[in-house]
Nucleic acid binder design. Structure first.
Lengths: 150, 150
DNA sequence: TTTAAATAAGACTTTTTTGGTCGTATTTAG
DNA sequence: CTAAATACGACCAAAAAAGTCTTATTTAAA
């Protein structure tokens, strides 16, 4: 019913890893598996999905692998989740989709979940993938609260 | 693994319903079941949880029922989800909790999911339950975009 | 004082989703 | 030709979610 799961986590870990590589340098699924324990098969399929959606570029064959193909500052978390898990609806409305309700997108007479989904979608759109991969934002703010130098 | 599910939906629907009643007027689980199709048992248990957490007040016996006991503007969506589903972690870190990692709260070297959880928690805290129950915010903004009078 | 209607709560079952595996094909460097 | 990699479909197992069943308790009212 909901969204954000292991696949998304593997995607984020993979992207973070690739981000720290020199431009053009490739990353293999095996590498991600060994370094972070991401299951090979699952991770592979996530990477392949990202290739299909144009977020990654792949090279096949021996010495093949994946690399980032887009500017991650311009890719929202919403985009990422959607490409991996499909259309985002954090919670399904019990009067929703499958019952053929037509005013579903704007209806929130019955279920406030419509409103919730909209708000969450907005939030996800406002969050760039690059932002999520930044290390230690929280720590930095804690340190600055203590008055230490960055 | 994640959060926000039917239980939360039933909670929101129930709260919305009770909100439209005169002060002191009670709502029964049966009523919610008949009006909105929320399964009686599940809804009952959600309501009981909200009673335990002080968000609702209940009266037992014949003519009993539930009513809202707190100002919903002061209850965040985070509070609501937490009381119904427990501590919020939209996605578990594969190097997280159960493996006994101690710097987990601040660590995001390996998994950006830590960062993500923190950001989502902040967002949920900034969202009041009252806000979610407001009807038709989106519509209103669409109308104002069209230049119509509110 | 009995009955009916309601909350309260535990145990259980079913269904759905998620996570992971297996097998095979294809591509490509060496 | 072989080894190492992506690509992809089908399948299985485990976990989570959703719902049901049962019983106890409370209380208004007949």
């Amino acid at each position: 019913m909901n969204k954000i799961n292991r696949k998304v986590e593997y995607a984020l870990i993979s992207l973070k890893h690739m981000r720290n590589k020199a431009p053009g340098e490739l990353t293999t699924a095996k590498e991600l598996n060994l370094l972070y324990g991401c299951p090979f098969d699952v991770t592979s399929r996530v990477l392949q999905t990202m290739v299909q959606k144009g977020l990654l570029r792949s090279e096949q064959g021996a010495h093949g692998g994946y690399q980032i193909a887009k500017d991650l500052q311009k890719v929202s978390f919403y985009d990422l989740v959607e490409m991996i898990l499909g259309p985002i609806a954090v919670a399904k409305c019990i009067h929703g989709a499958d019952t053929g309700c037509e005013i579903r997108d704007t209806c929130n007479i019955v279920s406030p979940v419509q409103t919730l989904n909209r708000k969450i979608a907005e939030f996800y759109k406002s969050l760039s993938v690059a932002e999520l991969l930044e290390p230690r934002q929280a720590i930095r703010s804690v340190i600055s609260e203590r008055g230490a130098t960055a």
